[in-house]
């Protein structure tokens, strides 16, 4: 039986995206996720991680970001914890997706994609931590 829970930590560097992908792919394959599900979850985790790395800290020090993945009864649960500034990505503005090319802005697209690919996202600030819990049905 493969383990259906995993925890790993990354530092606040974009080069860690390789490790993020490796960890997710290993876990996803061990619990039998499709390539498409792994792709979509990877994209969402990257968008959240990149936001944290880019905006959460006001110094260049190394900080740790925790990832908890679990899979039970066809549901993937991803919990992401960071100790950066308080930030609720669910409050990000939805981009205007219907405007002309010239007026199109890229901001907010990452969170928009995250909301699209997940069935449920929940944010809490707990002490000095941002805790984001994402759920996706992968049946």
């Amino acid at each position: 039986m493969s383990d259906d829970k995993v925890f790993f930590e990354l530092t606040n560097r974009l080069s860690e995206l390789e490790a993020l992908h490796d960890n997710l792919k290993n876990f996803g394959q061990s619990v039998g996720l499709s390539r498409k599900a792994i792709f979509e979850i990877n994209l969402v985790m990257e968008e959240i991680f990149t936001n944290i790395v880019t905006y959460a800290y006001d110094n260049d020090d190394e900080h740790r970001i925790g990832f908890f993945l679990s899979h039970e009864k066809g549901m993937m649960v991803i919990r992401i914890e960071d100790t950066g500034m308080s930030f609720n990505p669910l409050c990000a503005r939805t981009p205007d997706l219907e405007c002309a090319l010239e007026d199109r802005k890229i901001g907010g697209l990452g969170v928009y994609l995250a909301k699209h690919f997940m069935d449920h996202i929940d944010y809490v600030r707990c002490g000095n931590k941002n805790i984001l819990t994402l759920k996706k049905s992968v049946i």
Partner: peptide, 18 residues
């Protein structure tokens, strides 16, 4: 694989080319 970072570059290039 692609994420919004890749989409951003394509949007920027499409605007510039137009």
């Amino acid at each position: 694989y692609i994420s919004s970072a890749g989409l951003r570059v394509i949007l920027k290039a499409a605007k510039e080319l137009k």
